[in-house]
Design a protein around this nucleic acid. Sequence first.
DNA 1: ACCTGAGTTTGCCTTTTCGCAAAAACCGTC
DNA 2: GACGGTTTTTGCGAAAAGGCAAACTCAGGT
Lengths: 233, 233
Amino acid sequence: MPQRKLDRSLIRDLSIFRSMTDEDLDAVLSTASARQVADGKTVFEQGQTATEFFALLHGRLKVVQTTVDGQQVVVRHVSPGDIFGIARAMRRTDFPATAIAVVDSLMLAWPSSQWESFIARSPVLAMNALQTVGQRLQDAHTRIRELSTEEVERRVAHALLRLVQQAGRKTDEGILIDFPITRQDIAEMTGTTLHTVSRVMTGWEAKGLVASARKKVLVKDAHKLHVLAEKPE
Amino acid sequence: MPQRKLDRSLIRDLSIFRSMTDEDLDAVLSTASARQVADGKTVFEQGQTATEFFALLHGRLKVVQTTVDGQQVVVRHVSPGDIFGIARAMRRTDFPATAIAVVDSLMLAWPSSQWESFIARSPVLAMNALQTVGQRLQDAHTRIRELSTEEVERRVAHALLRLVQQAGRKTDEGILIDFPITRQDIAEMTGTTLHTVSRVMTGWEAKGLVASARKKVLVKDAHKLHVLAEKPE
DNA sequence: ACCTGAGTTTGCCTTTTCGCAAAAACCGTC
DNA sequence: GACGGTTTTTGCGAAAAGGCAAACTCAGGT
């Protein structure tokens, strides 16, 4: 792979590196390497030793956990600017999940061993990382609350609204989720089955809330979807 | 409240303060104050401004989130040695949940504003904190996976086994969960209703897996419970 | 233009879990 | 030692969601 010179601007705007000096940014970049991952390929797999951590520059990934009996759960989606695979920073030796590109993606990779020296060099990075992980923890609690207290339809509505936030692209028809996503994926995000997701969304389609095609979801009326997500009925 | 002199030994063994120097520990302690909270009282409430963070010395707390329509979800239980209420470290201004003592409890409290200076003084603390939050994130993902893929009985079994880990006390009859806990609590930990928990546990009682009384749970056969928790049937 | 396979929809029946209601058991206390 | 408020159990019917099976749709390759 040809090793182009990496530029500071690549990582300056990542929240985790925010308010680091140019000097520190250069130091961070000096141990980074770029990597391209094609649609459908994995960046790392559940159980592998965590030898690297990453930042996504372009594209989109999904992070999934597989249960012993083969069921899958989508842990989260990774958007450009996010860091991921930081298992080692939490003192795990292996990755607890698998990261799969859902479109062709470009990322930076660092050796896990670099983490400690980064922190030592710039303590603000530690606090940024803590915030990042803290945000994920809160997102996880939100999902636990939804799974515990809401019925399927509201959970799917919430999941869709979250996707709109993370990957919505305005079009004249409504807001398009900007990467390919299947009913199965949505089911794995909400703890239900693709059949039930299909039934729910067919119902919404009839009401004009969404439109969908194979691997595409278009939210036509985010407001009504929001009402539906909040109303306990 | 009489302000006894606080001793290093109080916090030396907390995982978050691990491998800090005596000097740093003293500095940390100098801004701490002790607080006693009676059974049933709250330490802080969801939505309040997070002016302090805490470490539990004695007792036990539950952390609960309340939904808009009044349903409750138990986020986690706090055991002696845990820190909690670190919303501010994740750059939240308010507490996302309520902490309630389930037995009379004793804790240390620090002003939230101290967090930054602690980190500055001892970067290892930042890494410890990151690990702590990372562990919680993984626990949360475990719960999401269970809520998404397991039926009620297995979820309750997992929850009980987790309680055994966190608060189990060996007796000659089996392992006793060492604080008062109701069916309602267990329901709020597993995303079900107290009725269903009661039915499940009555069934187990008949099989000799557990014994229970009002607000008490005794696990008589942890091994069988474990098998039940893992077997998809 | 036709095949092929992945993705989606749908009908029907079963199972799980809930909700409601009432009774029963238990603890602290007056 | 009776009383009152929690906590727990249990029965019964209802609702939500799942599982199975089959048909359908559509994009992409040959």
